[in-house]
Design a protein around this nucleic acid. Structure first.
Lengths: 216, 216
DNA sequence: TGTACATCAGTGAACGCGCGTTCACTGATGTAC
DNA sequence: TGTACATCAGTGAACGCGCGTTCACTGATGTAC
């Protein structure tokens, strides 16, 4: 192996163990939620002693940060890939739903009730903005055929658009995005939190109905 | 004091202490979230020793149950009172929003990410259905003037209405209710979770826009 | 190719912490005659 | 009204638990000559 090769065996081993830790962490989150995440429990599950994990993560908060980052990254890539494949706004909506259902706790970690006492670092909000940018772009394209009103929200956003900084989208596209986001999140989060259990209808139908109401 | 009086001094004291425990519990939830709820911490804050609270609550789970019950009860009463005062669906929407903003963690305890490992008891789902019934009734009245489509969701619900058991509402009213609920929850939950911070727009405007899109 | 050294993964013991919960007990409050 | 008894709120000690995290150490893996 060449001296300058950046992936030495040790480095490959490191990233591999890090990956397994995070895999176990996701399993644990899926079972008991993010606030129950425990380094010791993960170590035990991997057949290691607790302190061993401190070779790979500075502390519990860094692990959570990495999980949040991975979740955002995964969603951003999923949506970006769909968009690059020519998916329209409806296609992105379905990609979002599929992603959320594939791992409910991953969705809730990012868009659910915030983990108490945990503050997301700078760069995860950057990925979050990347996600929004992809959706806003699709909204701008879908705008002419959208059937939901973008006023008076669009007018409000025209005078309060300090956000989406540097993103050249008309306020109507931002309005459509916010409507798109909140409506789909409303269905998804109640579905994932189990608030529809007991009512015998199919959440997918509700999701499709909301999508149809947005795009006609 | 008459012998048969059901509120002896001791009973009044009991309910008073119980109330204070729950008050402190709400404060604690508001600060650190529901999963950080600790009986010992509450006792310390009240100047009591930890075990003292076991005179008032069988265990931690019972306290949480009581908090969930209180939250549901509070919302049910708020909406019912508004409806009895002649509020229409828009009025109920504003009552809901005011209630949620008054104590974000109370809203999230009930409609946010479920507390891991906690299972809500029977009677809280009964109160939850009471809340839905109030909203469904208002939806049935608002139906003729509603501007959002209730098809094809209404058709689906017509064949899957095992829920809202015994509530005599047309499927279109149920469809309007589900749309109403998920859209407002979408705005509220993202707002309360802090996902709009950084974007410089007013969530109230988005809320009003969604309401207008529903009712015209 | 072989030896000397440096790097680094993982261990086990330990610290302090706060948690939920049980238990035997004290002392105040209410009840019965 | 006064005394004897029962009720019950609250305490302090204790149990076992799992947590995050630090530290000195062992042993394996890689590197340099």
């Amino acid at each position: 192996m060449a001296k300058s090769d950046p992936t030495t065996p040790r480095e490959r081993y490191r990233t591999q163990v890090r990956a397994e830790v995070m895999e176990r962490a996701w399993e644990q989150i899926a079972t008991a939620g993010a606030s129950a995440l425990s380094l010791n429990a993960i170590a035990k599950q991997m057949g290691m002693s607790g302190p061993a994990l401190y070779r790979y993560f500075a502390n519990r908060d860094e692990l959570i940060t990495e999980l949040v980052r991975e979740a955002y990254r995964s969603l951003a890539d999923t949506l970006r890939a769909a968009a690059d494949d020519g998916a329209d706004l409806a296609g992105l909506a379905h990609a979002l739903r599929d992603w959320a259902l594939a791992d409910p706790q991953r969705y809730l970690l990012v868009y659910g009730t915030p983990v108490p006492g945990y503050q997301a670092p700078e760069d995860t909000t950057a990925i979050s903005q990347e996600i929004m940018a992809t959706l806003v772009d699709a909204c701008a394209i879908a705008l002419p055929t959208a059937t939901t009103p973008t006023e008076p929200l669009g007018a409000h956003l025209a005078t309060h658009r300090t956000w989406a900084a540097g993103h050249p989208a008309p306020p109507e596209a931002l309005a459509l995005f916010l409507t798109f986001w909140t409506r789909l999140h409303g269905v998804l989060s109640l579905e994932l939190a189990g608030h529809f259990t007991g009512m015998r209808f199919d959440p997918a139908v509700l999701f499709e109905a909301e999508l149809a109401a947005l795009l006609g």
